[in-house]
Nucleic acid binder design. Structure first.
Length: 224
DNA sequence: GCGACAG
DNA sequence: ATCTTGTCGC
């Protein structure tokens, strides 16, 4: 698929935050409610410990109806920014963009490993990827980040709102009975209800949605 | 002011 | 994210 040119990459936290603030108004909070092709995005780090620079970015496209793999791409690269909570996207975006660019099909929804609107400046990785590609995107986090929430009921499908600065920015969603919830939020061109519905539908068996699990596996075990 | 802080 | 064994459960 075709992806827009990445702008000059920020060198400092101040520049990165300015980019987020400038792109933030481009986020759209409504859009399609069904999707034929769904892509999972993930990055695996390998190299120098906590200062690890080497990474592998993976994108796996699934048929949303059957959850069969349609196409997968893995690319090696380097982290493009130091790890700073809230500026996470600047680490992996270049590598993810290159992987997306090598796809021969265009996904209808991007499922990102991280947050979207539930972010200190309301512009997490899922928003950033969505705005850059113009595609609907959502974020799935494994641990709480910003905001407050109550634990959802133990049954699959139960959820509670995540409230930050007086606004609902996401949901803690139970994808499997008795298993820790995941934290979902809008990225781009999707409603929060659609985000919830899609993540639940894409997680028939495990805690994390199938596209993200597939991408995680590919990033860890690329086929040379 | 201090601590906490997606991956 | 990663460093790491065994253990419990399906």
């Amino acid at each position: 698929m075709q992806i827009p040119q990445l702008e000059p990459w920020p060198d400092t936290a101040e520049e990165a935050e300015a980019v987020q603030d400038r792109l933030r108004p481009r986020v759209e909070l409504s859009g399609p409610t069904s999707f034929a092709l769904v892509a999972g995005l993930d990055v695996h780090y390998h190299g120098t410990g906590s200062g690890g620079e080497e990474l592998t970015a993976a994108v796996v496209v699934l048929d949303a109806a059957t959850l069969d793999v349609v196409e997968q791409v893995a690319v090696r690269g380097k982290a493009a920014f130091p790890y700073v909570p809230g500026l996470f996207a600047f680490r992996e975006l270049p590598a993810l963009a290159e992987a997306l660019g090598r796809l021969t099909v265009t996904p209808d929804l991007l499922v990102c490993d991280g947050y979207g609107l539930a972010h200190p400046r309301g512009f997490g990785l899922a928003c950033h990827v969505g705005v850059l590609t113009g595609l609907p995107a959502l974020g799935v986090g494994k641990t709480p980040f910003v905001g407050a929430h109550e634990p959802p009921a133990p049954e699959r499908g139960a959820w509670t709102p995540i409230v930050h600065d007086g606004a609902v920015v996401g949901r803690a969603l139970r994808t499997q009975r008795g298993v820790k919830p995941v934290y979902v939020s809008q990225g781009h061109r999707v409603s929060l209800d659609t985000v919830t519905e899609q993540v639940l539908r894409l997680s028939p068996r495990y805690r994390l949605p199938e596209p993200v699990r597939r991408a995680d596996h590919l990033a860890r075990h690329p086929v040379p």
